[in-house]
Design a protein around this nucleic acid. Structure first.
Length: 509
RNA sequence: GGUCGAUUCGUCUAGCGGUUAGGACACUGCCCUUUCACGGCAGUAACACGGGUUCGAUUCCCGUAUCGAUCACCA
């Protein structure tokens, strides 16, 4: 039935892309790829007042970063260009006027004040709904109520107007949502929505339906916030004569606050100390910088895996999925109906899983950079070794350098608690014996050999190795905790290891 | 408030009439280990409530409660 699946992600460039938007894009993408279809990116910039410079580029860069590939869009072209709604105004106007001609829509001249007055009046009268609809429109200033001559005069004079949909008074509007099943709404709940604004640009409803039709969209996968207006869109398809090719709808559950009531917001992210945008974003008006998942050290694979599982589940016990695996496993019917609470701890866990799978060489530049920022020289070879030493232990690449910090300098101070408890006569003798053994040793300075040298030295000195290991660590790093000590020494190198042992014997008492 | 929708461990969820209600995150304990982590093992913890339908309801139906979305010349 559906031969050429085409879906679209249609954000508004009113600011950085919210993480919920990324998930919507992801589900669209997974579905498109799964079905062997196409993914479009359409920029819905019909609200001139909310336009934010840079937002469109940000959206494109974000999708690219997380690995969502667009087949058609403003930046890459396609058969239905332009993909920016502000550049398609004539297309919408044509359809809007057509609806007026066919008696399915009408001109309305009411001012904002008049609309307010109407709503106030209805509310005062305890009307069931204070809206512009089949009942109230006959009391307003529009092409249905104005005398023909008056109407013509207003239009000729260029008076500003909007075009409103003539919503039927009594009609059941049904739609079969892929996720929610049949949803029925009575047309009386839908008001006479503005289709074309007085600035000549369409509202979301018109633009959306016209573009989805023209771009041959087969499946509209979007957030739950659109569910209430979906019947209106069904009505529009019918009035425009496109009912037979109307796309299928799928309304996604929302992302909820980590705790408390409501949907996930920027404020929750700030409070919880986690990002909510994929990339760092500098507000062009205020200059305020908002953190991004990328800059916070999340791997795109981890973010995607985490997001995919917020509202969907393959039904198996597998948790780690690459994008290709997600595509293979995805099914829109398995998407949840209820909202999912956002839990950053789970995102961290996913990141840990992906960090440990990363090649050492891929993580090394981060360590090298962090070391240089801290004022240390660090070759890429050294950084790679440090990654190998630590990547299994941490959740973010940025945690590697701080854990490896003591590798870069001879300790100036020693943890006093550990020194007090562990730096005894045995420890001193052990360090001295190990130093002597190391000086005499000519083998390759690698972890395994160092370990061998150490245990031999302890045996000769008659010292129980287990008793002095923490003191040894203290002598070498100044700290009581840290990664594998033998590997640490290997990275430090023989000369520096000897310097540190000597220094400890001089300074620790 | 009207309309529409949702409701399984603290969180993400599996379940689609008969299960010891499964997994993951987090938490706790044990093991591993020279330390801290990682890892392994184990444990605490859930079907919102009330009616039906049925031999039998977490599962189907109806209420109630709670939560969510939406009611603009914003998307």
């Amino acid at each position: 039935m559906q031969t050429n699946v085409r879906v679209r992600f249609a954000p508004s460039p009113t600011g950085p892309l919210h993480i919920g938007g990324v998930r919507t894009a992801l589900y669209n993408y997974l579905f498109a790829r799964k079905m062997g279809g196409k993914m479009l990116l359409r920029i819905e910039d019909t609200d001139q007042n909310r336009f934010v410079p840079g937002a469109e580029a940000y959206i494109i860069e974000s999708l690219k970063w997380v690995g969502i590939e667009i087949d058609e869009g403003q930046s890459i072209g396609g058969p239905d260009a332009p993909y920016r709604q502000s550049e398609r105004r004539e297309i919408y106007q044509k359809e809007a006027f057509r609806l007026v001609e066919e008696g399915k829509a009408y001109y309305a001249f009411d001012t904002a004040d008049e609309l307010d007055a109407m709503r106030a009046r209805l509310e005062a009268a305890n009307a069931p709904a204070a809206q512009y609809n089949a009942i109230t429109r006959m009391q307003m200033k529009n092409s249905l109520t104005l005398p023909a001559a008056d109407l013509k005069a207003r239009l000729d004079a260029g008076e500003s107007y909007v075009i409103r949909l003539k919503t039927p008074r009594k009609e059941e509007v049904r739609l079969n949502d892929l996720i929610r099943g049949w949803v029925t709404v009575h047309s009386s709940a839908i008001d006479d929505k503005v289709l074309l604004k007085s600035d000549g640009l369409p509202t979301y409803h018109l633009a959306n339906v016209v573009d989805d039709h023209l771009m041959k969209i087969t499946h509209v996968i979007r957030g739950e916030e659109w569910l209430p207006s979906a019947p209106l869109h069904v009505l529009l398809y019918r009035y425009l004569g496109w009912a037979d090719t109307m796309p299928q709808f799928a309304h996604l559950p929302l992302l909820l606050k980590p705790e408390g009531n409501g949907k996930l917001s920027k404020r929750d992210a700030d409070l919880g100390g986690f990002p909510i945008f994929p990339l760092e974003w500098t507000d062009p008006f205020s200059g305020i910088v908002a953190r991004g998942f990328r800059e916070d050290g999340y791997l795109p694979e981890a973010l995607i895996n985490f997001l995919a599982f917020l509202g969907w589940n393959p039904g198996t016990e597998q948790e780690l999925f690459s994008m290709d695996e997600l595509i293979a496993a995805f099914s829109i019917e398995q998407v949840h109906k209820g909202g999912a609470r956002f839990d950053i701890e789970k995102a961290k866990w996913f990141n840990h899983q992906y960090i440990r799978q990363q090649a050492n060489a891929d993580l090394a530049p981060t360590v090298q950079h962090d070391a240089e920022v801290a004022g240390f020289d660090c070759s890429i070879e050294k950084a790679t070794k440090i990654v190998a030493l630590l990547k299994e232990r941490i959740h973010f690449a940025s945690e590697i350098f701080p854990e490896a910090r003591t590798i870069f300098y001879t300790p100036e101070t020693y943890d006093e608690t550990i020194a007090g408890a562990k730096w005894n006569a045995d420890a001193k003798a052990a360090v001295a014996a190990f130093r002597d053994a190391l000086q005499a040793d000519e083998g390759e300075f690698v972890a395994e050999h160092i370990k061998h040298t150490l245990s031999e030295a302890m045996q000769r000195a008659g010292i129980k190795q287990g008793k002095i290991m923490q003191a040894m660590r203290l002598a070498l790093t100044g700290s009581g905790t840290g990664p594998d000590l033998m590997l640490t020494m290997e990275i430090i190198g023989r000369p520096e290891t000897l310097v540190r042992l000597e220094r400890a014997l001089e300074r620790l008492n």
